[in-house]
Design a binder for these strands. Structure first.
Lengths: 205, 205, 205, 205
DNA sequence: GATGAATGAGCGTTCATTCAT
DNA sequence: AATGAATGAACGCTCATTCAT
């Protein structure tokens, strides 16, 4: 009642909106998200959202930004403690997948929206987003220099590995992986194959 | 009673609806698809669609079914002429990606819609859908038996390869691959790494 | 119940919408007109209006068109029975004012909306609208040839007379004329002065 | 407590609100005027406006009042230097039109809003507003006494002249005068005809 | 087999205004 | 004197769907 530090019930409506939107995203998906539903879920009028965000797009952009930042931090931390490029690549893959599975709401808006449907996501933010890919590019380059990989172009391979991880997360989130396959085993195999795919080939294919 | 409207190909409105919907899907995307737009595009009343389909979902289910059948045929044909498991796997990968890029309208509804949000896609159809995965499983099994691969479980690896291909197609369709990367090179690298990922590893990772 | 000639209660929803809109316009004004209010007033859902009109603009354009046609007919008829240009001009003035006062709803959307607010009124209709002005131009020209007027340019004078009549109608509709002035006398004076204004001046002013 | 925000002209927020509203009116029109836009434009919160005005209507009433005062002054000055009633009437007409064209923001709220729809514009202000009409009444009376005019009732003719001028300004502001007509010529003709309309008629009409 | 008429629910957004501080 | 937070009502419009014919 007296003071309102920084995480009191007061004032952080903006925070509440972001969190609620995240939860709704995971429960109902982007398509079924509406300003009214968000408002109802937080117990405020729809108008109130506009006090904190310029509109639906701005709200989602803010969420995407948060997701990108969080992913960035997680990848950074994962890369930090790795001893060699291979271990580092493995850690990055694992972290990316974990992030996607743990934050499906972020994942959907960050990676699964067709850009044509999310109008005008500021290009400057896209650049920042893509910086997450650089983690993979750097470690591939490094490993290549040390003769651990057999890739042609670190940038290209970073993208294909990303594609592989993205597919893995997408299928898991969509529950499209055969139920008879154990989740952890699927993930581990996907990672192993991704890394193995960068190895110097034993025979030409 | 006498004349059949003005359309030459008499009767098969159902066919027309499906085709038009496909075209609309590719032009406007799933989100902007509406029954009215379909009806306008075929020159019939919106009500007519309901004579042939129970609703929007049923219409999409039918389309998904068609897409699955077509993909099945294409994979079948691709596998047919391969000489050895590795070549066959390569052909399957290439065909899957080609299918996705050539039929973005199918691809989106087949693989990019969250099933929880597409009301009750009949499980029996899902089973059929999954049969497309068996192509990959079979060739992996075969190659494993011939000592060409070093995988633990063909079913699991089939899924991870599928994941990899799905990620590749998804990123390409969403235009999220760095523009500086040549499209064909990206695809070729993705396929090569997918196959290489199944090879017997040179060192344990 | 059996047959539905052409003015039955059935089918003429379009007509009903137009009429109701007209009434609402006069009761509440253009600013307070909304699709919902129209729908409520006719006892239909708002959606139904869109079955007959592309949108609010199209609905108003249709009304403007009707108004222009009606005014055109009335002016035409007024001009028909006049014996000489002066009588004709007088009849036209009288008819224009009568039309405005009798159809305030038409008058508002026809003449009192700032064009910037009524988006994209088709220019081809504007041309037709302006044709109403030609009645005045023609009679002024004719009278000038017969030496009855002392005007410089029929087109310019037609416009100034129109301005005069427009001001007269506007003030009356807005109830801005002093209550102590009898309505009919005001109108009569306005008309007389408008005509007198075109006479050959007695002294230069 | 110490510093007064950043604005130099301390205190007179009320003045600032009025001025800003005027500018917004001319830039965006009455329809697009909103309290929030005003607040944004002056750099204060929307709430602040309510400290100085009871609401949107009151704010507009204040503006109307100012406009009436300004018009009054201008007409007064115009009348002052005239040598005879005809010249005076001409000067008044010219000044009225000039005022309208130079202050479209004032003109719209002063003369083009239907009072019924502008809640309760205080009648005492209307009286004051009407005083502007008296300029015309007086000069007509005077001219009539001197035999220069042939009008029946100065008050009535003042109103009809006003109507004429009002129509002229309205059409010009709405850009409804044929583009082929030169603006100044249109104005001059309107004024000449207005005055000529009060002359003693050469023949009865 | 095909339609026209109709609708309830919902969309993102803006508005003038209030109230506690 | 000034504000930030909040709101209910309304806006034009689109949607998938139903029903009588």
């Amino acid at each position: 009642m007296s003071e309102q530090s920084e995480s009191g019930e007061n004032g952080d409506l903006r925070r509440k909106i972001l969190d609620t939107t995240r939860h709704l995203l995971v429960r109902e998906g982007y398509q079924n998200l509406s300003m009214r539903k968000i408002a109802d879920a937080i117990g405020y009028s729809a108008t109130s959202i506009y006090l904190h965000f310029d509109g639906k797009d701005a709200l989602l952009h803010a969420l995407i930004h948060e997701g990108m930042m969080q992913l960035h931090e997680e990848l950074e931390e994962a890369a930090e403690y790795a001893e060699d490029p291979v271990q580092c690549l493995r850690a990055l893959c694992r972290q990316f997948i974990d992030f996607g599975l743990a934050n499906p709401e972020y994942y959907e808006i960050m990676f699964q929206l067709r850009p044509e449907r999310m109008e005008r996501y500021p290009p400057e933010k896209y650049r920042q987003a893509r910086s997450n890919l650089d983690f993979f590019g750097r470690v591939l380059e490094e490993g290549e220099e040390q003769g651990m990989f057999g890739i042609e172009d670190a940038k290209v391979s970073a993208s294909t590995i990303w594609a592989s991880l993205h597919g893995t997360v997408s299928l898991l989130l969509a529950d499209r992986v055969d139920v008879s396959i154990e989740r952890e085993r699927f993930i581990e195999t996907a990672i192993r194959q991704s890394i193995q795919g960068c190895r110097r080939p034993t025979v030409s294919s």
